[in-house]
Design a binder for these strands. Sequence first.
DNA 1: CTGAAAGCGCTTACAG
DNA 2: CTGAAAGCGCTTACAG
Lengths: 347, 347
Amino acid sequence: MTAQKNDKKNDRSSRTTGKPTLNDVARSAGVSPITASRALRGVSTVAEGLAEKVRQAAADLGYVANPAARALASKQSHNIVVLVPSLANQLFIETLEAIHAVMHPRGLEVLIGNYHYSRDEEENLLRNYLAYQPRGLLLTGFDRTESARRMIEASGVPAVYMMDLDPGAGLHCVGFSQIRAGEAAARHLLKSGRKRLAYIGAQLDQRTLLRGEGYRRALQQAGCYDPALEVLTPRPSSVGLGGELFRQLLASHPQVEGIFFGNDDLAHGALLEAMRHGIRIPEQVAVLGFNDLPSSEFMVPRLSSIRTPRKAIGTHAAERLLDLINDKPVNAPVMDLGFELMVRESS
Amino acid sequence: MTAQKNDKKNDRSSRTTGKPTLNDVARSAGVSPITASRALRGVSTVAEGLAEKVRQAAADLGYVANPAARALASKQSHNIVVLVPSLANQLFIETLEAIHAVMHPRGLEVLIGNYHYSRDEEENLLRNYLAYQPRGLLLTGFDRTESARRMIEASGVPAVYMMDLDPGAGLHCVGFSQIRAGEAAARHLLKSGRKRLAYIGAQLDQRTLLRGEGYRRALQQAGCYDPALEVLTPRPSSVGLGGELFRQLLASHPQVEGIFFGNDDLAHGALLEAMRHGIRIPEQVAVLGFNDLPSSEFMVPRLSSIRTPRKAIGTHAAERLLDLINDKPVNAPVMDLGFELMVRESS
DNA sequence: CTGAAAGCGCTTACAG
DNA sequence: CTGAAAGCGCTTACAG
């Protein structure tokens, strides 16, 4: 027995899809296709009686508009393109879900592009997705190629930038200050009187670097910045890597008193490694994470972290984009959602 | 300063998009649009000289084909639709990435639909996405509404089912036997002589239930099945939930000797909770997880788990789908990729 | 409030 | 190997 019926697919005798079209609906409702189109879209004024008949006919036939035809005729799709650097990071999933929750009820399809922290890949995705004539663009951060920047500008498609803030540039952005978050992390660790503080960051995307910069600034201000205690690697962030880097740092600098990790998973790895080797947290070394993933509060000891508003970022970025699409007036382009220091047991 | 230039978007004076079209490319290359189309798609035989001229012209103009027009004319999109029950679970992300890696180089766009473990949501997604005339469908498991099943069948779009196997149904599926995986888990725990064994599952999607069933069968066969030790909850799986359920089970049944968790994150929560309360793993209770997430081997103690081939599932499901799309002969519809028991410190 | 005509940007089917 | 004509299924712009 063959596993798949391909009757329709192989039927090349006609150029039609075989699905009911607007014409079918119109005929069945006894109106012209234009009226059917208007009734279904709820635009223009169609007599309520007719509109109802059309909707009924559409429902009876199981009519679903062909998005390709619609996009071609109106030169507008119902697509929103979201570009994120990673799906492996739980953080972006939560943002994506929030975006979907505001777009979907409005009939907008969310196309997700993952550029794997690669500027070139982002540029390619942009080129491809722009061909789909999206209604709007939701982008992550500001670190992209010149040519990507130009494409966005030239497309005229409304765009909102998520995660970081870029005051002054005039771009619409929803997020929080990565630099200030890094500073807050440092200040928290300094408050306990610790001086030998380290930063461990991976992936080295712009936001990780910015967090590091804020951290550095605060330490410099406190007069205790030591470049040797800044551990940066381009390797992707993971629990395993966190443990490895933690071990190495303690081996080379046993006197470290506190570590700020650019990501929670890195910090998880450190906590686990500490446990394995009997290193007492926070007595010997304080540990502070970033993002406050759902599992962080269940770590042993419970991980202190900086909670970031990634769900709210998704929601507000999506709503802002909707405003731009609908030409609604917007007060200020920059929307700062802040962050929250969660002090638990590890620091 | 307004944040967004909307010149093009607001230009309603013409019905065109302003982007270069096939016609522009053809004119610039001095050929007819059909020839340009053929040259760009690499179909039919176009004299190499002309083809090269066309490609050059397209590159010069920065031409990108309009997918809507293409889909409308050819009644075939370049879309592959993938429907997964969750993005929160790292597992599906890995599968998605693998799918993307085989589809993208072939010019196919992967549309991701997340139905949040809801049959109704999956049915809606299917209805919407089918309107996009996808080239193929990649679906998760077999648990769906009758009407979703009919839509798939009626659409004639080739489909491959991922994760579980369904021998005999004739559907193309790539995965492993969830039941046998559950049995293997039970047998492993039994081998150490432990008899009072529990299963803790959350979310209660079909695969979690199937794992439980396999587990139950094996215990019944060994004559030590106790329904009181089967803990099932529809709540979504998480580290926090794992700890909570673990604590409750030990409180009500202190004599439990081993626990199989339907998901690694649940098991992580248990390990952490055990550590917090000084419960020795595996001496007092053995713990076995499922999926073998990347962080599992770094837990304390290192988590034993059943490793599932989610990346390979994505790769092979995608390749199988490509075969179906291209009408290549397929030997057997069922592709069993198996699973692997990873015995570490927790069991 | 409703509709006939034209067009969106491609590809198909048919010629040559 | 190349092209003129027609058409995919919608919506726009223009009438009435």
